[in-house]
Design a protein around this nucleic acid. Structure first.
Length: 424
RNA sequence: GUGGGAGUAGCUCAAUUGGCAGAGCAUCGGAUUGUGAUUCCGAGGGUCGCGGGUUCAACCCCCGUCUCUCACCCCA
């Protein structure tokens, strides 16, 4: 027998009972996002590579070494999306969405792809729930989004006490550039005290030196200029407003001046949500996002303020301690026909219930009542209906309540009504 | 991309100094030829990740390789 190839590294199948947990999270996410007036947008998984290069950033790790990029058959370079914002912005511009409504709230959920070394909470095909809000410049909306995320995670079942909201402001790109220069000047002066990694970053991404784990480097960081201090009055006032509204909405947060995001398009407010709940390892950032006020314009649209977030589905599910079995739907009714004649008799009854929306399993392989009840029990059925010669002959069925053991005899004509009564 | 740990039944894991490959769960059958969830008995299921080496003999030791995993890095 030929061997089946394994699934691609870092890409997993998701089956029951685990998939029930996914359904639960996805439904909660829809409920909350819809309540905040977001509508779903479904964009392709494949985009032209240049879209990501121009939005995420040419020298970011994501674009430089993590994208699944290949030539389409017509020779154009395409990439599996590594994140969701770029495609949403592309669609926003493609559709001239600003001509249709002044404010657009979009959400999406689906797979993203990054070629990374897999570990707990980090896969090559992973899933995000994300949302983007276009057309509102007011800082109140930044706080609104963060508060929504906290509400969503609490609604999903993460203890509020396990959540940690971290925010920072990157200011306008010009301010960030000036700060970057100041940082390079500062660290260049003590270049010999930096570790190899930080020296490399001095050239590529000096802001990243700030969250180096090395104690020696951290000692230097303590004396480094702080981004927030070097922002303009306008940017600082804006950030203060975000904080004010967060407090008004009851969101506990902390400001981390060293919080920096790895995607180039971010401006002004950025945020991260971590949790200490569940089985997350080092990858305990469940959600990240921020403003990207220049991105729409830089991709060819009109100047449009915008912000968004990405929520890691796998990570959130890891944080959710409840076992997947708890989310399994169970069965309404299990039919156990004992032979072919009984199956012919029961199948239309099962069909009627099923098309009426009751979750029903019917055994097609025949068997004795004991076996049927074992299966019914294993499948978490509420009710079982054994059908044999007696039932076919008399037209009377016995409905067994698996929880209490009680049996109810009903004529075939009353089956659906009785079942509905018992399931309520 | 870098560094640790681990790969034995479908799943979770044992196997003494190198000496016949095991258990629980799951699956199937029976006790009970029409009544489960709680019993008892039995069965099937293995290239011990893969390849090479050492040895009379390797799940065990050595080398390589693949996969998973934890951490770094990066990020969701």
């Amino acid at each position: 027998m030929a061997e089946v190839p394994p699934s691609v590294k870092g890409m997993n199948d998701i089956c029951a009972p685990e998939v029930s947990k996914w359904h639960f999270l996805e439904q909660k996410a829809r409920d909350v996002l819809e309540a905040f007036a977001y509508r779903e947008v479904r964009t392709p998984i494949l985009e032209y590579t240049s879209l990501f290069v121009r939005s995420v950033g040419e020298v970011t790790d994501v674009v430089e070494k993590q994208m699944y990029t290949f030539d389409d058959r017509d020779g154009k370079s395409v990439s599996l999306r590594p994140e969701g914002t770029a495609a949403a912005v592309r669609a926003y511009i493609d559709r001239s969405q600003w001509n249709q409504e002044p404010v657009t709230r979009w959400y999406y959920m689906g797979p993203m792809f990054r070629h990374e070394r897999a570990q707990r909470g980090r896969l090559r095909q992973f899933h995000q729930v994300g949302a983007e809000l276009f057309g509102v410049n007011e800082p109140t909306v930044d706080a609104e989004m963060i508060a929504m995320l906290v509400a969503l995670l609490v609604e999903i079942g993460l203890p509020a006490s396990s959540l940690q909201v971290t925010i920072n402001s990157l200011g306008e790109p010009e301010e960030r550039a000036a700060y970057r220069d100041a940082l390079v000047t500062y660290f260049s002066a003590c270049r010999d005290k930096l570790d190899e990694e930080s020296r490399r970053r001095l050239e590529t991404n000096p802001l990243r030196i700030l969250d180096s784990k090395s104690p020696d480097v951290q000692a230097l960081v303590a004396g480094a200029p702080v981004l927030l201090d070097s922002l303009s009055d306008a940017s600082r006032a804006r950030f203060a407003k975000v904080r004010e509204v967060l407090t008004a909405l009851g969101v506990a947060y902390e400001v981390d001046p060293r919080l920096v995001r790895g995607l180039d398009y971010y401006t002004a407010t950025i945020f991260e949500l971590k949790t200490t709940a569940g089985e997350l390892g080092a990858q305990n950032t469940v959600c990240g996002g921020g403003r990207y006020d220049r991105l729409v314009e830089s991709l060819g649209g009109p100047k449009t303020p915008a912000l968004g977030f990405g929520l890691g589905v796998e990570r959130t599910l890891l944080a959710l301690a409840e076992p997947a079995e708890a989310f399994e739907p169970g069965l309404g009714v299990f039919f156990g026909p004992m032979d072919e004649a009984a199956l012919a008799f029961a199948l239309p009854l099962a069909h009627k219930l099923r098309t009426g929306g009751v979750r029903v399993e019917i055994e097609h392989r025949g068997g004795k009542p004991g076996k049927h009840l074992q299966r019914a029990n294993k499948m978490k059925a509420r009710l079982a209906v054994i059908v044999g010669g007696n039932e076919v002959a008399t037209g009377k069925l016995t409905i067994k309540d698996l929880a209490t053991g009680a049996q109810h005899e009903v004529p075939v004509a009353d089956l659906e009504m009785k079942v509905r009564g018992l399931l309520d």
